[in-house]
């Protein structure tokens, strides 16, 4: 069950991976994840090799292992699911430390654990080295439909506004003697949400009309991030190639 997305994952420093164009990073991340998922679950060596590869990219990006491990806790519900499977699975059983566990369940649990973890590490590296704005630019250059890019652009622009507005409203409630506890907060929370939406929409409408009157045509001007060069594509795809080689050799 979800907790919030209160933290931006982007690590704000410079590195060769940070400088790579976003479209290259998105492509590489997706293809690497596909290769990991396609790897047969018995290929233990391949998964170790992926981990080494991810470690190398993380080193190049100067993203520390401690940060990666802490952030990969996002995966915990699925780890729990994976841990349950050996106990509930059917088929032949094996003795592990005196407990009879389903072989099929152990493999299924391992499969979820290792592919989930490697996938999260790849996504974390992508998020750590690319700002949200760059990610949208990358999607745009990868020919993502314009409507989706537009919605995503507006979404990121209004997100911080909404969060700040919500915080102001919460502080205002607290200042009026509001005591948030369990179910009691549902009412105030719900009433606040309706007001939040209207306040944000009316602000958004004004900003949009102002943008239209200044010549907005549905595309934002390209930011600083330069388009990917051949060298950048080569660098990004070499990581994909390494992953593919591991997947095929396994």
């Amino acid at each position: 069950m979800g907790a919030g997305h209160a933290h931006w994952l982007h690590r704000d420093h410079d590195s060769p991976v940070h400088r790579l164009a976003p479209e290259v990073k998105i492509t590489a991340a997706v293809l690497c994840t596909v290769a990991v998922v396609l790897t047969p679950r018995e290929a233990f060596g391949a998964f170790a090799a992926y981990l080494v590869l991810i470690g190398a990219v993380a080193g190049l990006a100067r993203v520390g292992p401690g940060w990666l491990i802490r952030r990969s806790a996002i995966e915990l519900p699925f780890v729990l699911f994976a841990v349950v499977l050996p106990f509930t699975g059917h088929g032949p059983r094996t003795q592990v430390l005196g407990v009879a566990l389903s072989v099929e369940g152990l493999y299924a649990g391992w499969n979820i654990l290792v592919k989930g973890t490697l996938g999260v590490l790849v996504s974390l590296l992508l998020a750590a080295t690319t700002t949200p704005r760059e990610l949208i630019v990358g999607l745009d250059r990868l020919r993502c439909p314009q409507i989706l890019v537009q919605i995503a652009t507006f979404m990121l622009r209004y997100l911080q506004v909404l969060v700040d507005e919500a915080r102001r409203m919460r502080v205002a409630r607290l200042a009026r003697g509001y005591d948030p506890r369990f179910l009691w907060q549902v009412r105030a929370f719900a009433a606040g949400i309706g007001a939040l939406f209207l306040r944000a929409f009316e602000r958004g409408e004004r900003v949009y009309l102002a943008m239209l009157s200044r010549g907005y045509t549905g595309r934002l001007p390209e930011g600083r991030a330069p388009k990917a060069s051949k060298t950048q594509w080569t660098a990004g795809l070499s990581v994909v190639a390494a992953t593919a080689v591991i997947a095929v050799v396994s």
Binding site: A152, T153, F154, R157, L162, F197
Partner: peptide, 19 residues
Amino acid sequence: APMAGLVAAFIFAVQMLNF
């Protein structure tokens, strides 16, 4: 257009608050 962006941002922001 801005409505859609705002609805998306709103869904996103409300997901930050848990009940």
